[in-house]
Design a protein around this nucleic acid. Structure first.
Lengths: 241, 241
DNA sequence: CACTACCGAGAGCGCCGCTCTTGCCAGTCC
DNA sequence: GGACTGGCAAGAGCGGCGCTCTCGGTAGTG
């Protein structure tokens, strides 16, 4: 069958793509089951019915496999948060939008502990996150920023304390550049940027505490606790009730 | 030399103790150098001039070694924070005391990245922190709580918003019991407990972000950024300026 | 149809945690 | 002071890991 209609050189390339996907899927399953530290290339090889050395035809090494999974997970989490925030019908209700986005972060994390560890746990020793991972990683944060920006534009945000703005501006210049490059709140007062960054830190810190067991016996209902934290943050951001 | 004055059975026990300490010290050095995930029992055995199997005479297994290091590090960090806070001469200046304690957390962490990973990074897969580690872990938090409590007792804390206190009380009952068992602010309004917990979460989250590289290109000066965060938290706690 | 590029399998290197056995020597007890 | 025994270091070994290299077969290619 000399089929010229099907792209000529892709016969092998397609098989390659398929198997690569298969390997990634198996790795993802292992990741979900045992966490990133226990992810072994030999194990995914067995799962996919190959000998370990054969996997190296498709994956450069273990780090590359982890990187691929990181990108995949960041995208998945980002999409989950985007969807949850977008599902809020009343767009002017920034508080609900904020809460929805924050909740989505926790919900996904609780449902995917292994993946959460990969994204926000200790970096693998000697592993430096390649630039490819940066953009997917920011997807989630941008949702939160957009909510804050909308609240700001809507005029519902009370002016925040105007103390010592000068050095603040320099300090968060990187963050503002970052946002400006994506066409977001270029004119926000540095104070607001600071609070947003702090809020994001607190959100992730709260989830991490829960996931890594630092809250045991301290808080009775982690889910309710998270809501309290998220709403309190909204209030501090001037989005709250 | 039948020396009965020296405790009779301790000849061997003492040697045992010495060598155990030697192993712990070597492990600590490896930890500082490479981080907890890369800590290998065989490597510390080499460092201490033994064959790997011999180490098992002194350490049950790798997890037990890690646990010992965890306790040691928690204590060291706790002591550092206690010292820093105690060094503030003007005891009524709660803001400075708060800042000193928070700074000590970051300073120690930056100086001991490997140890920080051990304490606050991803738990080793399949490793459950034994109860022995809980008490040393709280030492640090108690310093922060004490500062908040002092500010509260001193009457300088403005009343916080009294919204929805009922469910808050249930939510943080565990934390209040925990504090009460140590004779600390048993009568604090739940709102204050919430804020203190949130503040601690934010402090550790901020340090984690810095240590794990999630803040790259976002904040120009991590140390200054940390100060901003800590002071902002103080303000939110009613301790600030 | 000949061929070559690609692929899977296997063996192997050095590392890891952990276990079991062996032989020695020092601490202990009579 | 001498016999003994218990703790100890060392070695070999098991299975698993990441990763490399070589080899033979086959499937896609010109």
């Amino acid at each position: 069958m000399r089929d010229v209609t099907s792209t000529p050189r892709t016969a092998r390339a397609l098989a390659r793509e398929t198997i690569t996907q298969e390997i990634l899927a198996a790795a993802r399953a292992r990741l979900a089951a045992d966490g990133p530290a226990a992810l072994s290339l030999r194990a995914v090889a067995r799962d996919v019915g190959m000998v370990s050395s054969a996997v190296y035809r498709y994956v450069e090494n273990r780090d590359a496999l982890l990187t691929a999974l990181i990108v995949e997970c960041y995208d998945e989490l980002g999409a989950a948060v985007e969807d949850a925030e977008a599902a809020v019908a009343e767009r002017s209700d920034v508080t609900t939008r904020w809460l929805a986005a924050c909740r989505a972060v926790r919900t996904w994390s609780v449902a995917h502990p292994g993946e959460f560890r990969l994204l926000y746990g200790t970096p693998v020793p000697g592993y430096a996150a390649p630039p490819d991972t940066i953009d997917p990683a920011t997807r989630l944060v941008l949702v939160l920023v957009r909510v804050v920006a909308d609240a700001h534009d809507g005029g519902t945000v009370p002016p925040l304390s105007p103390t010592a703005q000068a050095d603040l501006t320099d300090l968060v210049a990187g963050a503002r550049d970052f946002l400006a490059a994506r066409g977001l709140i270029t004119d926000a007062p540095p104070e607001l940027v600071v609070r947003t960054l702090m809020a994001w830190t607190t959100v992730l810190g709260t989830v991490s505490f829960e996931m890594f067991g630092h809250l045991v016996n301290t808080v009775s209902d982690p889910e309710a606790w998270f809501d309290v934290v998220a709403l309190r943050l909204a209030a501090d951001l001037g989005i709250g009730l």
